[in-house]
Design a protein around this nucleic acid. Structure first.
Lengths: 144, 144
DNA sequence: TGCCATACTGATAACGATTCTCATTTTCAG
DNA sequence: CTGAAAATGAGAATCGTTATCAGTATGGCA
């Protein structure tokens, strides 16, 4: 092997250095709506719009976006990764388990709790992930 | 094709009618811990324990359990479906991003916030997932 | 402006998780 | 005990996602 020339930045393969039509296309398509969309979906929409972009490239672009914080990603109950453009404001998601409708929520309470709890256990530089899942009003009345 | 003889119950294949060693084994294995576990994991544990159960059967049992409300299920960030017996003491995890050390934490504050936030948005039957990631004291002093 | 190293793309193979198929085994009512 | 039907399990089939790798295009530089 004798791998690892390791110039000093061991694990940072995620930094776009050139701008391309394809990457912009994916970014734009994602920004076109504010809902969570799957890679396959984006790929299809792009194709339908005439701006064909390879599926692999869509996956890469989406990952890069999520990685740089420009997009949020999570797993749909069906098991697909879904992405959405993300505002700068830190927030969490409240997702309907039935229709998938998503609401952005914020909570000073959680933020504080996270800080406090972590600190109390000797942890620093805390990040947190919070997912709320429930049934929204329309779905509740419909299905029962 | 002339398909669909349709005897009258088109979509209700989810009702266990006979009890079997395999189903019990899966149920027990899941109950043995109170964490979320993947089907593959359960299958492996079962095998290691000498109580071999087919992978397909594990998947079926887990689905049936989740379906009947005896288990909770969600998708891990890795994209796997994970299951947990319902009715355990609810807690969250504080994980060190460096050494992987995990601390179980509880927080009335989050629980309340989750309830309140969901309710305010018209959601009911709320579940929540919280993950805290940070750097623990030993790791902080070591690496810097 | 033209050249070149190399980042990016895209078709396709590889992969891992989950579901489906179907022959065989097991359960349970009579 | 017997038979019909449920349940199992090994392996094939799916499906979403990632890895490969040769070809293309971008941006720095002469």
């Amino acid at each position: 092997m004798a791998t690892d020339p390791d110039p000093g930045t061991p694990a940072a393969p995620r930094a776009r250095e050139r701008s391309t039509r394809q990457f912009e296309a994916v970014r734009d398509e994602l920004a076109r709506g504010d809902d969570f969309r799957s890679a396959q979906d984006i790929h299809a929409s792009l194709g339908a719009r005439g701006t064909a972009v390879g599926l692999a490239t869509v996956y890469r672009a989406l990952q890069t976006l999520a990685d740089s914080g420009a997009a949020d990603s999570l797993r749909s109950p069906a098991g697909q990764a879904v992405y959405r453009v993300c505002g700068q404001v830190h927030h969490h998601h409240l997702v309907c388990r039935s229709c998938g409708r998503t609401v952005e929520v914020q909570g000073l309470a959680v933020e504080r709790w996270a800080e406090k709890t972590a600190g109390a256990n000797g942890f620093s530089d805390v990040e947190h992930t919070v997912e709320l899942t429930g049934t929204c009003t329309p779905c509740r009345t419909t299905s029962s």
